[in-house]
Nucleic acid binder design. Sequence first.
RNA 1: UGGGGCGUGGCCAAGUGGUUAAGGCAGCGGGUUUUGGUCCCGCCAUUCCUAGGUUCGAAUCCUAGCGCCCCAGCCA
Length: 560
Amino acid sequence: MSEEKVTPSNFIRTIIDEHNANGRFGGKVQLRFPPEPNGYLHIGHAKSICLNFGLAADYNGACNLRFDDTNPVKEENEYVEAIKRDIRWLGFDWGEREFYASDYFETLYAYAVKLIKKGLAYVDDLSAEEIRAYRGTLKEPGKNSPYRDRSVEENLDLFERMRKGEFADGEKVLRAKIDMSAPNINMRDPVMYRILHAHHHRTGNTWCIYPMYDWAHGQSDSIEGITHSLCTLEFEDHRPLYDWFLDQLEIHKPQQIEFARLNLTYTLMSKRKLLKLVKEGIVNGWDDPRMPTIAGMRRRGVSPAALRNFSESVGVAKSNSVVDVAQFEFAIRDDLNKTAARAMAVLNPVKLIIENYPEGKTEWLEADNNPEDPSAGKRTIPFGRELFIEATDFMIDPPKKYFRLAPGKEVRLKHAYYVTCSRYETNEAGDVTVIYATYDPATRGGWSDDGRKVKGTLHWLDVRHARDAEVRLYDHLFTTPAPDEARDDEAFYAIINKDSLRVLKDVKVETVLAESAPGTRFQFLRHGYFCADSEDHSPEHPVFNRTVSLKDTWAKKKKK
RNA sequence: UGGGGCGUGGCCAAGUGGUUAAGGCAGCGGGUUUUGGUCCCGCCAUUCCUAGGUUCGAAUCCUAGCGCCCCAGCCA
């Protein structure tokens, strides 16, 4: 079977091909995924991870994992562990190439000294507010700081004393001396170091000055010998600055390439807002199945392959875009259809009694585990006189083209028999409480040779063997396709979907489901894809999360 | 004329002067089906933000507009 993978071209591949052709990096392709350990990875990061690691694999290169941990007040070890777990789960391996920007603090310090000596950096005493005022505006140039022309010796002395801790937070900064009238604001003497008497998750208290991202990032890439430094669009304006640093330092210069970050409808991608959801208890943690985090999706039941295929399918380009979440759901179904074992679960049970079936009798019937994959094998399931079927699979007065159960109508019970509804009972409220039917013994296995047309097929469970379970139905967290457009808290709270989680407590499931290991993914026949919850599921108290429903053209027809 | 980017069907996205303007998602119609699932078939841009121009020939080149996104953290 030659399943040739067609990797669509994109502008990044074109650039790499050009470099390989003209020998810019000697044919070498070295990439990196550079997360800041200040939160959990989300599906947008997944796209970047797949891009970087995927490109490295395709070009016989390598991809480093580097934590950009230059801001101790926001970063924590919990996040680095979570990030590593997520990348591994996604299916990528960085081997020994695990790095931290904090590993380079000493080198970065030396680089800064080098710039000071070249007269290209200076210690500034201006306050944060003053620096902002001196920076000018988008349309007007800034003006030079009065401290801009300190001597190299004074700068060297002051910078050393900054490191030694002689100054308070915010008292001084080290700045690059470039051009306060540059049209690109990033070139107006950007801050390189700030004083922060803070504990760092890796370097502890050895530093009280920390490099700014803009000062650390390019040099970190350079130190690691990165050839192609992929980042998102908003850093396009920073590229001239990174190049300036590298040129002045006269060290290896990677090629930075910017691409558009992933946006999804009905999905929030801002780390700040996701943190808010977690902190305010709007969701149950970073791994809540409604979260777009990799951890949340894992818990929801999304497979790594689905995430990877999706990342591939959305492409890489420079235009801001918002991908329809339906495209993601397609990727999930597409993968799970091939890999998830089928089983029956009755979400809203109602009793079906087969009047002509012997009381007390049990038959064990054969069922395919996955019609898409014969190697998944078969299992046997018990059948008897009293069954549970889905309450929504019966209608007293059905509309045209309804091929489920109704008085006098015949349907197939999957893997079992044809049954015909004879009568039903209701309570005072008019709800159907019991349905009666007769079965045709000649249709064992759910088939007859007489050419009878039975359009409807229902799933069912033997009352005596059915196991109780809890099912959690998830929906979009937001009621609007563009939740990022909420400008303030009021608007934000207003668009939160109150029904994003619905818990079903009276669900009946097959034994295989109840006995499954946490994290196992299934297709609940005719319902959708579900996953045994990794935290709360046990054979004594089975809990399943709905990953995504099956497509439902009947529901669509009904709406019309 | 602050600087930097981007405009191809409802949503993504190939395309780099000569193709009937790929492909996927969504949608619609039909077939198969022991899941109203899957699968299969068909339909879905005479037109590429607009207007001019160059050319035998333009989504691709030129000119002028228009629209959208990003930048004034001692965040990343």
